[in-house]
Nucleic acid binder design. Structure first.
Length: 432
RNA sequence: UCCCCGGUAGCUCAGUCGGUAGAGCGGGUGACUGUUAAUCACUAGGUCGCAGGUUCGAGUCCUGCCCGGGGAGCCA
């Protein structure tokens, strides 16, 4: 029995007899010679069967190889210029493990609605495999970045009683005798508490928004990483963001070039992603957008079109800082130099991918924070623990949240955020 | 919640002026010893989203509904 190997290992095994297990992508036959294209998750391989060199049973099995049949092929690894990938398997035997019939996703075009109805099977396609691998790299790079900088991971609750930013748009669930609980839309308030314990912390997990958003940039369930740093002001915060995003992009370029190539991602724009990133204040951005012909009046949040237009002016992500207080969350620190604004920033990805980061310095003055909670008519009791952080040794601190799927979509150059997660949850998608 | 677009074979779509339902791919059968989404021949496959209306006659025109997509708002 030859040893079983993954396809990715075969270039190092030229001349050896090996067994490979995988799934059929396509078959081609010319009567007495046949080609089976298969995949195993690590790579793609062409097996070559010659009528006179395989047992009758293997040749008969060939006729039953529909798309996505699982099988084991044994044979000699051979370098051949004609083979996709440089090596192929000259088969000596072939065994069907699990038959397959009428696989719904054929090697032709499909619409996105159909593909998402078959998401559990669509994951097997080359493109989706490449995206999954890039996402994995992004997630690993995020963890490594913070580990290398001595951040401590703090897992924040998904079920919460108090609410995050604004009321509404939360998923509610029954919680025993304690009434209604909500699925977290941010871990930020909790990492603020943890920052006073551990200094540099982050949380990384799923987050939930019950917004009825139907756009290519929105999911109801998505992954977000939220660092929070004691003694960082807003400028420190922006510096951390540009180093962080540059690190993640560089890692993908370093380790996932084959996947990005598979996705036909133009990697040149990604090569330009290194600190420092351009910075522009909200007020200057409004002026600039006016000059560019997009009439945004001061005091209103930047819309999607305005964000895209602004981001197009730069070859790397742009940091837009100090937004008007009234369009931002209650916990953001008032800007002493211009109290109409707060010390926050968004990061807009290039190439029209929009906001990938939202961050701010937090209001550390107890009375000002309480006043803002009252202004927003938030339930004061629910925030008493949050106010405690300002009562017992308040401290300057800042943090941000980065949306994983938006970041993956940008790095992969894919048009739709829904392809950036294995099983997307949207307004109309709870299945599969 | 609002605006725009769509729904015809398993999939992607065409269907003219209202006049017998079409193509490619996929499936099936067969041919072929180096294919790269192989090629070639033959073949099966339809509740035209649902309901009603106009008409001699509706995939096509009208009304209502259902489902989906994109965008706005909101955000990562």
């Amino acid at each position: 029995m030859p040893d079983f190997h993954r396809i990715a290992a075969l270039p190092q095994l030229v001349g050896q007899t090996v067994a490979v297990r995988g799934w059929v992508m396509t078959t081609r036959s010319s009567g007495k010679i046949a080609f089976v294209a298969l995949r195993d998750g690590t790579g793609y391989l062409q097996a070559v069967l010659s009528r006179q060199e395989v047992p009758d049973a293997a040749w008969e099995a060939l006729g039953k190889l529909a798309q996505e049949t699982s099988l084991e092929v044994t044979g000699v690894v051979r370098a051949d210029r004609r083979a996709p990938g440089g090596v192929e398997l000259q088969a000596s035997d072939l065994t069907i493990i699990g038959p397959s019939h009428d696989f719904p996703i054929t090697p032709k075009e499909h619409g996105t609605a159909f593909l998402f109805e078959h998401r559990h099977l669509w994951l097997r396609s080359r493109r989706q495999v490449a995206i999954a691998r890039v996402r994995h790299e992004v997630v690993q790079a995020i963890r490594d970045f913070f580990y290398e900088r001595d951040f401590i991971l703090v897992d924040t609750p998904i079920l919460t009683g108090s609410i995050g930013e604004a009321a509404g748009n939360l998923f509610a669930v029954e919680y025993f005798d304690l009434g209604t609980a909500y699925l977290a839309q941010t871990g930020q308030l909790y990492v603020e508490a943890a920052a006073a314990a551990l200094g540099k912390v982050y949380c990384f997990g799923p987050t939930f928004r019950a917004e009825k958003s139907k756009t290519r940039r929105h999911l109801t369930e998505f992954w977000m990483v939220e660092p929070e740093v004691a003694w960082n002001d807003s400028n420190d915060n922006m510096k951390l963001q540009e180093e962080f995003v540059s690190y993640v992009v560089a890692r993908c370029l370093e380790r996932r070039r084959p996947e990005l190539a598979e996705l036909e991602r133009d990697m040149r724009p990604l090569e330009a992603i290194r600190p420092p990133f351009p910075r522009i204040s909200y007020t200057d951005a409004v002026e600039k957008l006016g000059a560019l012909g997009s009439g945004i009046e001061w005091g209103r949040d930047l819309g999607g079109d305005a964000e895209t237009l602004l981001a197009k002016q730069y070859d790397r992500p742009v940091l837009v800082y100090n937004y008007p207080k009234q369009v931002k969350a209650f916990y953001m620190k008032e800007n002493a130099a211009d109290p109409r604004t707060v010390l926050n920033n968004d990061m807009l990805a290039p190439e029209g991918y929009g906001e990938i980061i939202g961050g701010s310095q937090r209001e550390d003055d107890h009375d000002k924070l309480l006043a803002r909670i009252r202004e927003e008519k938030l339930p004061e009791d629910a925030y008493s623990w949050y106010l405690d952080l300002r009562k017992y040794g308040t401290f300057v601190h800042s943090g941000f949240g980065l949306g994983v799927e938006r970041t993956v979509a940008w790095i992969c150059g894919i048009p739709h955020i829904r392809e950036a997660i294995a099983f997307p949850r949207t307004l109309y998608k709870l299945w599969p």
